[in-house]
Amino acid sequence: MSQQFKETPQNAITESGIARVIPCKELDIGDPIKWLSLGLRDALRSPGLTFFYGLLFAVIPWLIMYLVQMTGWHLVILPAMVCFMLIGPFLAAGLYDISWEYEKNHKPTLSHSLKAMKRNAVNEWGFGILLLVLMIFWLRVASLIHALYPPYLDENFESLLPFLALGTIIGGLFTLVMLFITAFTQPILMERKVDLATAVLSSVNAVWVNKLPMLIWGGMIFTAVAIGFVTGFVGFIILMPLVGYASWHAYIDTIVTKRGRDYE
């Protein structure tokens, strides 16, 4: 399968003293829907692997909420959702591998997908550490917001509203930053032996060039996470593998190569 470019490769970061930037193509506003349809196709082709990773994605937020209940800090529910969105791209490597195997006309296996992190191990683990640092930073900000809550106020919606609004605004801005950083970093590191700075800058560049389609895509991901929480994490069993598969197709559709990909 060879990649066809719909537009001339774009590069919003013309110069970088940190690393090179892999160009991207200009996306259409309807491309996120196409990515989801391709992701659904991959999910239906590998139901066993999809269920395995879906179950994994369901257990992780359950543990997060269990910790929230143990601490009694109800105001950290929103930060917990953001943390899950931070961890998601790192854990989705196995799902990317499954879609990649289908691209190469191979039959995906669990053992092969679990080895996905080893292809560019140093930089991929560096990406994991980066996500961990950002997650800790967000938790510290969330703790500061929680500390501002006066202890003498009743825990009703009217009293909590100012702090929920503040947390939502800050969390929204933080999530937007994370969309720029994480949108394509992990797939780039998986497919190409490049350094972490190159992958991150290429992701930032691709999101900046395609702001509207990527905002729609980010909104879809956030909606999937929200539905997962509303359904008591059961929805994650289906939705998170779907997002993972679709994210790989988003990468293939966005980040260009010097030569077309030909897996046959």
Results as ranks from 00 to 15, higher is better:
residue 70 M to Q: 15
residue 148 L to I: 05
residue 147 A to I: 04
residue 151 P to R: 10
residue 162 P to Q: 08
residue 178 M to N: 06
residue 210 N to L: 03
residue 38 L to S: 10
residue 214 M to K: 09
residue 225 V to D: 10
residue 131 L to P: 06
residue 124 E to R: 08
residue 168 T to V: 07
residue 156 N to G: 08
residue 233 F to G: 01
residue 7 E to Y: 12
residue 48 G to L: 11
residue 261 R to C: 03
residue 81 M to G: 14
residue 109 T to S: 15
residue 90 F to R: 10
residue 209 V to A: 13
residue 160 L to D: 11
residue 50 T to W: 04
residue 149 Y to I: 15
residue 206 A to Q: 02
residue 244 G to S: 00
residue 114 L to C: 03
residue 74 H to E: 10
residue 43 A to K: 11
residue 218 G to S: 13
residue 46 S to I: 03
residue 138 W to E: 11
residue 6 K to F: 07
residue 209 V to D: 11
residue 218 G to M: 04
residue 36 L to K: 01
residue 165 A to Y: 01
residue 197 A to E: 11
residue 94 G to I: 08
residue 179 L to R: 07
residue 183 A to K: 02
residue 61 P to T: 03
residue 229 F to L: 08
residue 94 G to Q: 13
residue 231 T to I: 05
residue 258 K to P: 10
residue 10 Q to V: 12
residue 108 P to T: 05
residue 8 T to N: 09
residue 195 D to H: 12
residue 141 V to G: 10
residue 102 Y to W: 09
residue 110 L to Q: 00
residue 144 L to E: 13
residue 47 P to K: 09
residue 111 S to V: 02
residue 37 S to E: 04
residue 54 G to C: 08
residue 135 M to H: 04
residue 38 L to D: 08
residue 81 M to L: 15
residue 158 E to C: 00
residue 219 G to S: 12
residue 264 E to F: 09
residue 169 I to M: 13
residue 41 R to E: 15
residue 48 G to W: 05
residue 241 P to N: 12
residue 136 I to E: 07
residue 85 M to G: 04
residue 222 F to P: 01
residue 171 G to M: 08
residue 231 T to S: 15
residue 219 G to P: 02
residue 248 W to I: 00
residue 77 I to E: 08
residue 107 K to E: 14
residue 206 A to Y: 11
residue 176 L to K: 02
residue 146 H to F: 14
residue 119 R to Y: 14
residue 55 L to V: 14
residue 132 L to G: 13
residue 74 H to W: 14
residue 13 I to K: 12
residue 57 F to E: 02
residue 134 L to D: 02
residue 70 M to S: 10
residue 64 I to P: 00
residue 75 L to R: 00
residue 116 A to K: 03
residue 32 P to F: 01
residue 178 M to K: 01
residue 220 M to N: 07
residue 245 Y to S: 07
residue 135 M to E: 14
residue 61 P to C: 01
residue 123 N to V: 00
residue 135 M to W: 03
residue 224 A to H: 03
residue 175 T to W: 14
residue 162 P to C: 09
residue 124 E to H: 06
residue 31 D to E: 13
residue 21 V to G: 05
residue 256 V to K: 06
residue 193 K to I: 04
residue 149 Y to T: 09
residue 145 I to T: 05
residue 181 I to E: 02
residue 17 G to W: 02
residue 224 A to I: 05
residue 263 Y to A: 14
residue 10 Q to Y: 05
residue 79 P to F: 06
residue 51 F to W: 07
residue 1 M to A: 07
residue 107 K to G: 06
residue 40 L to M: 10
residue 112 H to G: 14
residue 99 S to K: 09
